[in-house]
């Protein structure tokens, strides 16, 4: 990512109570970068919440000695979030469920990855000193 700027780079404990603060920070950056209003009030908060809760609950299994690293990167016209946990990783393709089908719409779970994919321009997994997910939102 040549010419990219890091907007924030934080490490948080594996506790879901930290999610709201990180999301608020991301939302502020989104507004400062003058992204469309709904991208700052809906797309970023929901998609980043999903990535963080996956990392905390599934990746790190809420273990207090494990941390989640979250970076926000401004790359040209894109806002990129990288969320890295210390877990075993998961296969994005095999976790891909359409929660809108008649048999799935009444299920309590299974909307997290779906929402990330619908609300971001791209969702990729990567390995970099842990297992990560990269969310990219273009202006």
């Amino acid at each position: 990512m040549g010419g990219a700027t890091v907007a924030f780079d934080l490490s948080i404990p594996s506790d879901v109570q930290y999610i709201e603060g990180i999301v608020e920070l991301a939302r502020q950056r989104c507004r400062e970068l003058k992204f469309p209003a709904q991208k700052c009030s809906l797309n970023v908060p929901v998609a980043l919440s999903e990535a963080l809760s996956n990392a905390i609950l599934r990746g790190n299994e809420s273990l207090p000695n494990k941390h989640v690293r979250v970076r926000a990167i401004i790359d040209g016209g894109s806002l990129v979030f990288e969320v890295v946990d210390e877990g075993a990783g998961f296969d994005l393709k095999s976790s891909n469920i359409d929660c809108t089908t008649p048999e799935n719409v009444e299920k309590e779970e299974g909307r997290g990855l779906f929402l990330m994919q619908r609300l971001m321009d791209s969702v990729e997994s990567f390995v970099d000193d842990g297992n990560g997910v990269r969310l990219t939102l273009r202006r």
Binding site: S41, V46, G110, L115
Partner: peptide
């Protein structure tokens, strides 16, 4: 403000 997938899941569960 916003609702995440687990919040939506709780609404579905409560409705049932």
């Amino acid at each position: 403000g916003y609702i995440d997938s687990s919040g939506l899941g709780v609404l579905v569960s409560l409705s049932k």
